[in-house]
């Protein structure tokens, strides 16, 4: 078999395999993608919350993407406390200003970053939250101060669409 003939034969087979592989990939993708969040789930990716009835010192919990979100209207005392914490004292250093752009409102995912339990409000050694599962203590900014949780409670994407409404997500 001459070199040329072998090359041509190989090229045909290689081309066939390559084109075939493209088809296999194109076929597999929809089967995989159908498990991704569907359009109706993605439509609920954000939610708007009416906070007009939330007075200072009060926390409400809303469901967003299947998880609890704490919305707390903080008292001046809590704000001052949160802002005066030294960053070196924090396991996960983060300024309160970066967590609550509008200092009066703390909006965060009510999920303990240790193993996912929902921390209890107004409990613990730091005037914030306490997780009963394994003893994590969070401060008035939702930052981890004591206990096994590695990071602060997560701040989701949110914005005030007007004075009374927060859009989360």
């Amino acid at each position: 078999m001459s070199e040329k003939k072998t090359n041509r034969r190989d090229f045909l087979f290689t081309a066939t395999y390559a084109v075939g592989a493209v088809g296999v990939g194109a076929t597999v993708w929809p089967m995989v993608d159908q498990m991704n969040p569907d359009a109706s789930v993605k439509a609920l990716a954000s939610t708007e919350v009416d906070v007009s009835s939330v007075n200072p010192g009060k926390t409400i919990t809303v469901l967003w993407r299947g998880k609890p979100v704490f919305i707390r209207r903080r008292t001046q005392e809590e704000i001052t406390e949160a802002r005066s914490v030294k960053l070196e004292d924090l396991k996960d250093p983060q300024k309160d200003e970066d967590r609550a752009k509008n200092p009066e409102w703390l909006v965060m995912l009510g999920v303990c970053t240790h193993l996912g339990c929902v921390p209890l409000d107004q409990k613990g050694d730091f005037n914030g939250w306490f997780c009963p599962c394994h003893g994590s203590h969070y401060d008035t900014s939702g930052r981890i101060r004591k206990g096994p949780a590695p990071t602060n409670m997560e701040i989701p994407k949110y914005e005030f669409v007007n004075a009374n409404t927060i859009k989360i997500g």
């Binding site: 929809p30 993608d33 159908q34 991704n36 569907d38 359009a39 109706s40």
Partner: peptide, 8 residues
């Protein structure tokens, strides 16, 4: 709503 649901 399901991604490629109509196709499947």
């Amino acid at each position: 709503d399901v991604n490629y649901g109509w196709l499947i």
